[in-house]
Design a protein around this nucleic acid. Structure first.
Length: 210
DNA sequence: ACACGGATATTCT
DNA sequence: GAATATCCGTGTA
């Protein structure tokens, strides 16, 4: 059994650094309808107690954000606006910093995801609630599980390299205090599955991968 | 009971 | 592109 607090990936670096490292990694879910997944193309870092936009701001701790306090690699699913969003705890146990996985470029189980979403093309997975709907996840049953031990997995060794990582402020936290404007959102420049990207900014050739 | 949010879809100028 | 309707679980009262 691995010592989770010593995890060589999640504990190695600050949460914003890890958010960038996740870009290009393969995210999979072993769903009841078959394996689904894709490349992570957009993430956001939430820096814990000090971060006015984070769920754990000022050490806030409730039943629903408890997974943030789990060991690195803990699955944190939470609901907002009637959707489910996927986070991963990024630091040692009791350090409540997390990374929101906002979009993926789908590569596995396209037919299943299209059925779950009743949409296709970029609309399949170009947003945090959309990718969870595509996966067919509509509950928080996997909370507190660890990526890799869970049916959810982030394959650290199966990774494409972005040509360029772009940064911006985080989405949907506009009036969440002084941290609202910090550049803690990261995405693969030119990838069509990044939320809100304009068609003219697509990298048609390589989707932003090296 | 009730207000609201780490979102999405639809409907307009 | 921007405005708006709707989503429903969660925190606070």
């Amino acid at each position: 059994m691995v010592d989770l607090d010593q995890d060589p990936f999640y504990s190695n670096g600050t949460t914003d650094e890890i958010s960038k490292k996740l870009l290009g990694m393969l995210l999979t879910y072993d769903s009841p309808k078959g394996l689904v997944g894709g490349r992570i193309v957009e993430t956001e870092a939430y820096m814990g107690q000090k971060d006015s936009a984070a769920h754990a701001f000022k050490g806030r701790r409730t039943a629903s954000n408890e997974p943030l306090y789990g060991p690195p690699g803990t699955v944190y699913i939470y609901s907002i606006h009637g959707r489910y969003l996927l986070d991963v705890a990024a630091q040692a146990k009791d350090v409540p910093q997390g990374i929101l996985i906002r979009a993926i470029e789908p590569t596995i189980g396209l037919a299943v995801m299209e059925q779950n979403r009743t949409r296709h093309g970029v609309e399949l997975t170009n947003g945090p609630g959309k990718l969870m709907e595509a996966f067919g996840i509509a509950d928080k049953d996997m909370n507190m599980e660890i990526f890799g031990d869970s049916k959810l997995n982030i394959h650290q060794d199966d990774k494409k390299i972005p040509i360029q990582i772009e940064e911006s402020n985080r989405i949907g936290v506009a009036n969440q205090g002084t941290w609202a404007t910090k550049p803690l959102r990261y995405f693969v420049k030119g990838n069509p599955y990044v939320s809100g990207i304009k068609k003219r900014d697509y990298d048609q050739k390589s989707h932003g991968w090296r």
